[in-house]
């Protein structure tokens, strides 16, 4: 029995030493909590915000910098990814189907093996296979909009024009979540057309009120060719008449529900007055 107690005390002492060392002998670092899924508010997104979102994703959720950093040498640096894209698409080793820079960058993220920068392939694959995972799947799981934000960031980083467009339709799952939320408090009515245009970021797509969007029709002299009824209809149901040379379905179908009647009429009056 005496031996038993001695051995017991000895063993408990040893365990105590190990536990004590782990608790007090080394610095206690609190691991980061599991990442929270970030909701994207694409409706009210300007290009600067979109680029900033891309930068956040690039450094955070996308975990890109884990490998794409200057110290590790695990993956190519991406400062000029957007500028070299067109050369890459001409390269004989290029396996993908992209024809624009945006498509190429998108493809490089979801299908990394389409083009492997020399020296960065999986060991033994002779640069035919990339060690990079498909970032739209699995643990990283970036959504389509998030990928586009990163493309915007990369284009900005390279100093080229940002040609990627801000996606307007949020993922259906997010839409569901939005309906489940309590209805937002009614906002105060805006009293100038300029404030309205800023609030609904019309200038992101249209050339209007000093802004120079190029996705939708130019509105600087819209009053000369279109009447109020046409303009009202275009705001309430954007796809009813689509201007020539532009795609249907680009403009969000939300203004009928988000603007008050007074605001709508004020905007229509303003646009009709642009001659």
């Amino acid at each position: 029995m005496r031996n038993f107690l001695k051995v017991l005390c000895f063993s408990l002492l040893v365990i105590g030493l190990f536990a004590g060392y782990s608790n007090y002998g080394i610095p206690q670092i609190e691991p980061a909590p599991p990442p929270v899924e970030e909701k994207l508010e694409l409706g009210a997104m300007t290009m600067d915000k979109f680029i900033a979102l891309g930068e956040r994703l690039y450094n955070g959720k996308g975990t890109c910098t884990l490998c794409h950093n200057p110290t590790g040498g695990r993956a190519p640096q991406l400062e000029s990814a957007a500028t070299v894209a067109s050369e890459r698409m001409q390269d004989s080793r290029y396996q993908g189907t992209a024809s624009t820079v945006v498509e190429y960058l998108y493809e490089s993220m979801v299908e990394p093996s389409a083009y492997v920068v020399a020296g960065f392939g999986k060991a033994g694959s002779n640069d035919s296979e990339s060690p990079m995972p498909d970032v739209s799947a699995g643990g990283i799981g970036l959504s389509d909009a998030e990928l586009k934000a990163i493309i915007a960031y990369l284009q900005d980083l390279a100093g080229t024009d940002v040609t990627v467009s801000i996606p307007t339709d949020a993922a259906p799952a997010e839409a569901e979540e939005k309906t489940a939320e309590p209805p937002p408090a009614p906002r105060a009515a805006l009293d100038t057309p300029d404030a309205l245009i800023a609030k609904f970021t019309c200038g992101a797509c249209h050339k209007v009120a000093g802004q120079v969007g190029a996705i939708g029709p130019d509105l600087t002299t819209i009053g000369a060719t279109r009447d109020k009824a046409y303009l009202r209809r275009s705001l309430l149901d954007p796809n009813a008449d689509v201007a020539e040379g532009f795609m249907a379905g680009m403009m969000p179908n939300i203004y009928g529900t988000q603007m008050s009647a007074a605001e709508l009429e004020m905007l229509v009056d303003y646009l009709a007055g642009l001659k």
Binding site: P27, I29, H68, N69, P70, T71, Q77, L78, E79
Partner: peptide, 10 residues
Amino acid sequence: LRSIHPAPPA
């Protein structure tokens, strides 16, 4: 614990 010469951003 704090690294004083952190890896610089690109």
